[in-house]
Simulated assay, not measured.
Amino acid sequence: MTAVDHAPLAGAVQPRQLIVTLYGLYARDDGGRLSVAALVRLLAGLGVEEAAVRSSISRLKRRGLLAPDRRDGSAGYVLTPAARQILDDGDARIFGRRRATAADGWVLVVFSVPESEREKRHALRSQLHRLGFGTAAPGVWIAPGHLADEVIDVLRRLGLDGYVQVFRGEHLAFEALSATVGEWWDLDGLRDLYAAFLDRHRPVRARWSRRRTPDGAAAFADYVRLVTDWRRLPYADPGLPPHLLPARWNGVRAAELFAELADLLAEPARVYARELIAGGDTATAGR
């Protein structure tokens, strides 16, 4: 969802990753603000201690994603405009990502950055990688054509458009793309990420299939972890057309599992979270 943390999950989730998810899911309808007390209460339901919550908030503040916002004696933090844009961009990836078709063609980004502006070169590469582009040749990046509008918008917004040319195209001849895409993207590594996601969340589905009565706290904890875990994958995955993917591509099963659990958990999780947020301005808020 963000430029904040796109590293694959391995082991315990970092509290700051959970905080980004909480803001994305529950803060934007309220002006992008959550009180510190509410965050402490929400994260307690995810097994995060108060000290870790406060430390993670400070890190997100230093990175320009949260800004202090005190109201009626309640300490809190509000999303910065940059953070809100990142979350808005991420919604389409996380909840509405579609896989490309052959008719979409390809988008090529060609760039040349002077040695004196190496930081711009690094920023370009980082953004293209984050958007799911693969490297076809030095200075030439490629992605399915349905990502063209997104990359143009992002590069323009970040002031990187002066270094690039963007082209649409189609594959005409020679080596089969089904062989070449494995050189442009690390599909084996992506398959491993999807396998890990399935291993972590299939037991969640099995547990909920046996549950007889709703449990808002459990739905909240499972849903926040689900979204936090998933939100990296739609960026790591370029969304290649199915005919270019390896047989029995597990990304399809992972996407189906995410959609199934999201449909099941989102509403009871939202109700529970709103209750915690509404009761969150307690004595912890002013500390």
Rank of each mutant, 00 (worst) to 15 (best):
Y77H: 14
T282L: 02
L39M: 14
A92V: 14
Y26H: 09
D29R: 12
L9F: 08
R200D: 14
Q17W: 07
A283D: 04
A179C: 06
D89A: 11
G169D: 02
Q14Y: 00
R41C: 02
L193D: 07
L264Q: 05
V140S: 07
V164L: 08
G216S: 05
N250P: 14
L261D: 13
H243V: 15
Y235D: 12
W141I: 02
D188R: 10
L193M: 13
R200H: 09
R99C: 00
L190E: 03
A38P: 00
V227N: 05
V252G: 10
E275M: 00
G73D: 02
L240H: 12
I94N: 09
W230V: 12
A102G: 12
T180E: 11
A92Q: 14
A195Q: 11
G286Y: 11
K120S: 10
A218P: 10
S56W: 01
P234R: 00
R274M: 07
S56K: 07
D281M: 00
L66F: 04
L79K: 04
V13S: 09
I19C: 05
Y23D: 11
R207A: 14
R191D: 09
L198I: 05
P246Q: 03
E115M: 11
L46N: 00
L87T: 02
V166F: 05
T2F: 04
I142H: 05
D104C: 04
A67Q: 09
F258D: 01
Y223K: 02
H6F: 12
A102M: 13
T101H: 10
W184I: 08
V151A: 13
M1A: 13
L190F: 07
R205M: 15
P242G: 08
K120V: 15
R156H: 14
A67K: 13
A285D: 15
A92G: 12
V36W: 12
S58H: 15
D30F: 15
V181R: 02
Q14T: 06
W208Q: 11
V166L: 02
L276M: 01
L233N: 08
R205C: 06
A262D: 15
L177W: 11
E119H: 12
L160S: 07
D186S: 12
A196E: 04
L39G: 08
Y235S: 10
R99L: 05
A100N: 09
P138N: 14
A196G: 04
I19F: 02
A75R: 09
L46A: 01
Y23I: 08
L87K: 01
I86S: 11
T21N: 13
A38Y: 06
F220T: 03
A67F: 07
V13Q: 15
A136Y: 08
T228F: 02
D89M: 03
R212C: 06
R93S: 00
Q17N: 12
P242V: 07
P246L: 09
A102K: 13
L233K: 14
